[in-house]
Nucleic acid binder design. Structure first.
Lengths: 329, 329
DNA sequence: AACCGATCCGTGAACCTTCACGGGAATGCC
DNA sequence: GGCATTCCCGTGAAGGTTCACGGATCGGTT
């Protein structure tokens, strides 16, 4: 099993005191060259490694860590966000710890909460559960909103983006609207429930709604769901895909089935992935400024930290979305 | 400024002892319901949050953390790896801390090294520098190899994949080979130096080599470099792109220039991204088993941990690569 | 009245490092 | 020889939590 080798073991082995070992390890001066070498050799021999916990405890931890929880690392949308968060965090001298909530959210949160100072992210849980699992840690909800104390948020105004997209699609002649929603809630909560995007979309299209199908959040899942939607409602001429990843699958699927895009059906995604520009036809999408999402989030995090993580009034921000017209719609 | 509120503050405020506060916070029994409520109320009021360092120090931290350093979070290849690492780590009850080495590698490593038990990843630094920055932490090199003590590795046998690809391309009639290499080293070390992939490729094609161009590691960078390569050497009939991301750009660029793929030029990437299947034509690629890369890595990490992080003989593993024939070559 | 078990709560120690300070030896100078 | 200086090194304390143990209180039993 082997106990941990501490600074005292090294000190004993080298025949010096703790402090001298510290001086050698962190090369601090006030130590002669021979002694330093002797200590370093002993440390090397014993495989000594300072406990990062003891060290942080006494140095009062100047650099903080923020834990980012994303739904999946397989979706470029989330990894782009992670990348932006990483830059923003680095610029502020914060460390970023990433976890994916694909499963076991509560356990994962509890584990994470022992390692970081703030938790930010997308969660597949009810707000109250999140708060409990976080054990009192401040939380920043991404693309969500809660009125619990200690739960901050950065919302994304997808709603207006959807509204804009629908009116523009109407202006371009679209009449029969369809949507592929995410089956996300099915996996998390056991039963499907309409996402906010679907609700906003339904409100926007009114009786122009022809049908909705749910699918898995992946390229292939989007492709399958799109094909199913078109099979059920062949007269649809405009489709909103839950996200760009699924929209990519839809474009591909349309190509395979022989549906012209945007000739027969206009396809529009959500997220604004750069990737959407690399396919044919380039994907029209409701894009949000991820950079701004990230910087707003870290702003909040920094405010919380400045307040020494004491309980402060929840902060809520909103970033706008806009339709990025490329060629698929 | 505000000093940190400790367990003693809460104890004083609630009129009980430290231990009772602990019992209330971690609800442990041996405490009456009214007292518990009283303590919890005091904690809430003061905004008390246990120090994760002090706590970890005494509980001897059962869950460890591994730090993953990737070159970029904008390349699906790396995020896929991160995703696999995350699953593997989670299955083993490890936490994963991700950092991107896009810049400041040494500082970043030092910061990271105070937070984790092992460091794994792709680094843009000489091995020795890595070792120094890691401050004695065990290191697992991804897709690399070093003979320094304490530096383990998981290599990827791209070389044989490139060999296989070249002979198959020859069998399909390719004669004039070109390559787009990564300009990576330029950014990191100031001057371009051929990557191993280029060296293996040149060895494989022999005097069939028509030309090499370097480009930035992105879709658009790949597209530009490919266009440049074809402008300089119009007779090329097969191109190896440094990675799939750049290959995606090449396919797109070929389409724009009016070069037929694979009719005029066969294009082949490296990485095996699932994304390559979503473009037209689907991308042929030298794929490696990322899952196995991740599991091998975490295997090593676990072995190191089992040895209580004592110095053990470096472990080296290799995962194979194989050509995934789709339609672009 | 003495005893007993159950229930609740508090005290000393441990975890491992760094910080602040103080002390000894060697050297140089008057 | 006495004294200050410099250079190395060691000791006590602190940092905030949890663990192991011991003590107090209380209702009930003999």
């Amino acid at each position: 099993m082997g106990k941990r080798v501490t600074i005292l073991d090294v000190a004993a082995a080298a025949g010096v005191s703790r402090q001298t070992v510290t001086r050698a390890i962190n090369d601090m001066g006030d130590i002669s060259e021979p002694t330093k070498r002797k200590v370093l050799a002993a440390a090397e021999r014993l495989g000594y490694r300072p406990s990062r916990f003891a060290r942080s405890l006494v140095t009062r931890q100047k650099t903080h860590a923020v834990g980012l929880v994303v739904a999946s690392l397989r979706n470029p949308y989330f990894t782009d966000i992670a990348a932006d968060m990483l830059s923003e965090a680095a610029a502020r001298k914060w460390q970023l710890m990433i976890a994916a909530s694909e499963r076991d959210s509560p356990e994962l949160l509890q584990l994470l909460s022992t390692q970081v100072d703030v938790i930010v992210g997308h969660f597949g849980l009810p707000d109250a559960e999140i708060r409990d699992a976080a054990q009192g840690l401040p939380i920043v909800l991404l693309e969500g909103r809660s009125d619990l104390p200690g739960v901050h948020s950065v919302e994304v105004d997808i709603e207006s983006g959807i509204g804009d997209a629908v009116s523009a699609l109407r202006a371009r002649g679209a009449r029969r609207f369809g949507m592929v929603d995410s089956a996300y809630s099915e996996r998390i909560r056991g039963a499907y429930e309409p996402t906010p995007k679907r609700q906003w979309f339904e409100a926007a299209v009114g009786d122009g709604l022809a049908g909705v199908v749910v699918g898995e959040e992946s390229i292939s899942g989007g492709g399958r769901a799109f094909a199913e939607l078109m099979r059920l409602h062949p007269d649809i001429d405009a489709v909103l895909m839950f996200n760009d990843l699924m929209a990519l699958g839809a474009v591909q699927s349309a190509h395979a089935i022989g549906i012209a895009v945007p000739g027969d059906v206009r396809i529009i995604g959500v997220d604004g992935l750069a990737l959407g520009d690399a396919v044919d036809p380039p994907l029209t999408t409701i894009s949000l400024d991820q950079q701004s999402l990230a910087s707003n989030t870290l702003d909040i995090v920094e405010i919380i930290a400045k307040a020494d993580f004491a309980r402060i009034a929840p902060i809520h921000r909103t970033v706008r979305s806009k339709v990025l017209w490329r060629e698929s719609a």
